[in-house]
């Protein structure tokens, strides 16, 4: 059973307990998803209630990115680091952003040791006031931000976290600028809560990072908001 971002009802309808749902909404570790799911992404597996996904497709960046600049957030570890390194290998100048300055520097070192161009940038993305600083840093370090998603025919962006970007607050209201840019302004789907561990491990194993990824929604009217079934083919 899945909700459509209105995720509180189904677990209660399934007969689940409400205490852990309350804790989840309040962002507490005692919540059904340890406070990481929140209102729109809560799942209560004890009663078979899953959160929803949106439709996603991903196109790997394959062309040469020489003389281009890329900003990669969360690049100190995991998927973000892998993306930064791939962009570096493809010839882009990479601004390696992470809330942890040390890990950002480690990624930067790995890229430069491989012959690439990179600069580390410590930033907490929850602090939206600092976002212009990131762009300014990239511009001063590399002379301009040129790698924009639509310029490179990126079909969609998917991540293994709950909202792709950190949700911050401006004047008390939640601010999700990437959602606005991609979903509203560009019509580009965002994929949330993807389980990428197996794919990442497989790519690391054989060194092949290109694949075809499909993530079809239910073939029904209104199915666009249904859970997708991502499948990577290599």
């Amino acid at each position: 059973m899945t909700g459509t971002h209105r995720s509180h009802g189904p677990p209660i309808g399934e007969g689940g307990e409400v205490d852990q749902l309350c804790a989840e909404l309040l962002g507490k570790v005692t919540g059904v998803n340890r406070g990481k799911g929140g209102s729109m992404h809560l799942s209560d597996f004890s009663v078979g209630s899953l959160f929803d996904h949106q439709v996603v497709a991903v196109q790997q960046v394959t062309s040469s990115l020489a003389d281009q600049v890329a900003i990669v957030t969360g690049a100190g570890s995991g998927i973000g680091r892998a993306v930064a390194q791939q962009l570096g290998l493809a010839g882009a100048s990479v601004l390696v952003c992470d809330v942890d300055g040390e890990t950002a520097q480690e990624t930067t070192d790995a890229i430069t040791q491989g012959g690439g161009r990179a600069t580390a940038c410590r930033i907490d993305l929850a602090d939206v006031d600092r976002l212009p600083d990131v762009v300014a840093t990239a511009e001063s370090a590399f002379g301009g931000v040129a790698v924009w998603l639509h310029d490179h025919e990126i079909a969609a962006v998917a991540a293994d976290n709950d909202a792709v970007e950190g949700v911050s607050r401006v004047d008390g209201a939640p601010a999700i600028p990437l959602h606005m840019l991609t979903l509203r302004d560009m019509g580009m789907p965002l994929g949330e809560g993807f389980y990428l561990e197996e794919l990442a491990a497989d790519c690391a194993d054989d060194g092949v990072y290109e694949c075809m990824l499909v993530a079809p929604a239910l073939r029904a009217t209104g199915g666009v908001g249904s859970p997708v079934n991502p499948l990577a083919m290599k």
Binding site: G3, R6, P10, L25, L26, G27, G38, S39, P174
Partner: peptide, 20 residues
Amino acid sequence: EIPSVVHLSVGMEGSIVGAC
């Protein structure tokens, strides 16, 4: 008191419980 964006399911009770 709730830090995240909240979408309520008021009015959907019947369809939710019926489906469940």
